[in-house]
Design a protein around this nucleic acid. Structure first.
Lengths: 358, 358
DNA sequence: CATCCAGCCGTAAACGTTTACAGGCGGCTC
DNA sequence: GAGCCGCCTGTAAACGTTTACGGCTGGATG
């Protein structure tokens, strides 16, 4: 009794076979009287089906995993917030893997798919999809959605969809805007070049400058980590090297936060002396003073799209791989206000932590 | 082949029985030669054990769930960040349930324990542990850790530990501090009274005032939701009703954010005219301007403690229920700076998104 | 050479479901 | 009244593991 009733227990009590019990519990056509007896016994025993046994038999776990670098990063939090309700609605449970951006760890998750503890996976590999990733995805034979760039030639049988954003366009939006408000010496605080976003944004910065007819100057670029203190360090270095910068493009909001810290510390006015743009448009952007203009890469949309693609595959079976591209957009706030407009009172965002799904 | 090899496949290829295969794979003593043959076959086939079948047989899933109101809330994010690495280290996977604070949903999670899809649960019920929660916990027969208040008389057999903080002390710390910096008309922006934290903080506010010899004035209290926009509304109402307040105690950081928005909008100086204190000491507190003095309720510690208690129970079997109390502390920043000290340059926190575990 | 023991190994059962298949029973038709 | 058909139900197999148990083999011992 300590072990909870099974369908066998119910069968005995109801005086029927376990097959009948199963049929009744699954709503298959059964004689009225049998149904009543089984239902009664199940109720009295407080029966709850064992999901593991069911999974073994049905070859599905009703679980889906989401793997990303760091659950503390607001971008991933935004994704989880969107993914969770979609999956729940469809009857799936959500597993979280925080990989610390460690490639070995990511591979572990992908390889783990073969243990069949989940029906599908959404993964956002920080350092890109390598040969080994691809192998693991093919070997998995469980659908995978990759958030981020995917190599060109995926093998035939790979059950993989792709959600990406176009951070190059995002950078361009930002630089166009800075140019439009009169900035000409635009510094760039980037993240590590061996991460996918870092590499993409480096290229995009250069191209955007070119499109604007501005010269590319190595001195205007500083590389660090995607964190606030690292952003502060980078900003300090850049500002001392090139005191005349009039704008800072930051590869994410946390870096921008660090930059704002330093600018304030040095008594430079934002946006009067230096305009600042962040990326990801996290909730932090509406908290700072001045509020932070930021490129939205649609984290929420990406999360939702990924969940949608995965569910579609799980429910409708095999099909051609699909790619969803989420367009970036620019949210203009106080840190790049046009001269004349008061940069101080960029109105705060709508809500800190509510909003989002439903 | 599309279905992946099982131990049966290996057994055939290696010319041994499935029992031997299992023994080899589990490292049980076996003849050298057999080990080699099995290992070889397993390698060639790319065998990976099926975790569902193993779970069924072993009666454990190596999965643990964490249920909280909202994964978007920085408090829970902090907890997850601590829980995840501890569990991973111990070989457990983490499932996330975001319940929206819905009591039905919470109960669903607790009842779901009987499906045995996880080995244990960490839950933080927003609206307290009801009779029904207790019933479900007892019926679960799987260990549960409750983060938050637990009713006095838990039944004998309940496999439940408890991690709590003492938000009353937290409120007292904050009010003592406000009193020490000369504030006498201290408003209180609370969250819903039917939530556990809301109710506790309401009482604590009243008692702390009393201890300080300050009168309790209903007009100084405003109740809303735990969100930023709600905090702004509440602040507006309170400020127009009692223009002379010289401090605002906020029941969480998001509310404090809303209050800061309103104070800035009305041109009141913080902390000159009005001092502000938040609660939870989330990363937001070091971002605002001025930076926000906040009561830390040790979210990270609570998460870590909860994971520890659960693992202990899973590894060492039954024992007396345990209670861990995490002491609150006050992090003083710019929003309550003593007159004289520059309230503007409260130094920014160490790092936005890194730090934490490991 | 018979006996015993240790060390390996294979058979089979068990975990708790779902479901193919076949058997039983009742009612209908001729 | 015999035969047939259809409905309902029970038996048993299957999902992929782990493990108790007993049997076989070989060497050591008397």
């Amino acid at each position: 009794m300590t072990d909870g009733p099974t369908i066998t227990t119910i069968a005995q009590r109801a005086g029927v076979s376990i097959a009948s019990v199963s049929r009744v519990l699954n709503g298959l056509p059964t004689r009225e009287d049998t149904v009543r007896r089984v239902m009664r016994a199940a109720d009295e025993l407080g029966y709850v089906p064992n999901s593991v046994a069911r999974s073994l038999r049905n070859r599905r776990t009703d679980q889906i995993a989401f793997a990303m670098a760091d659950i503390g990063n607001p971008v991933y939090v935004a994704m989880v917030r969107e993914i969770q309700p979609v999956l729940k609605e469809a009857g799936y449970r959500l597993l979280i893997h925080s990989t610390d951006g460690d490639a070995e760890d990511e591979l572990g998750v992908l390889r783990g798919l073969r243990e069949r503890y989940v029906d599908g996976l959404i993964i956002s590999p920080l350092r890109g999809v390598t040969e080994e990733h691809v192998e693991a995805i093919v070997a998995a034979r469980a659908p995978v959605v990759v958030i981020g760039a995917l190599p060109e030639g995926m093998p035939e049988g790979a059950l993989v969809d792709n959600v990406r954003t176009d951070s190059a366009t995002g950078v361009r939006l930002a630089l166009d805007h800075l140019h439009a408000v009169g900035r000409r010496r635009i510094g760039f605080l980037n993240g590590p070049l061996d991460t996918v976003p870092g590499a993409a944004r480096a290229v995009a910065y250069r191209e955007a400058l070119e499109a604007l007819g501005l010269p590319y100057d190595e001195d205007l670029v500083e590389v660090g980590d995607f964190y606030r203190d690292s952003g502060a360090r980078a900003a300090r270095t850049l500002l001392s090297r090139v005191p005349g910068v009039d704008a800072l493009m930051c590869a994410n909001d946390l870096i921008a936060l660090g930059a704002l810290d330093v600018l304030r510390e040095q008594g430079r006015d934002v946006p009067g002396d230096v305009a600042v743009v962040g990326m990801d448009d996290t909730e932090l952007a509406s908290v700072t003073l001045p509020t932070l203009t930021s490129v939205s890469l649609g984290s929420a949309e990406r999360g939702r799209a990924a969940a949608g693609l995965l569910l579609d595959r799980l429910q409708n079976g095999p099909r051609e791989p699909r790619v969803v591209v989420v367009r970036p957009s620019l949210t203009i706030r106080g840190s790049t206000a046009l001269p004349g407009a008061s940069g101080v009172s960029g109105r705060p965002g709508v809500s800190g932590s509510s909003g989002g799904g439903r």
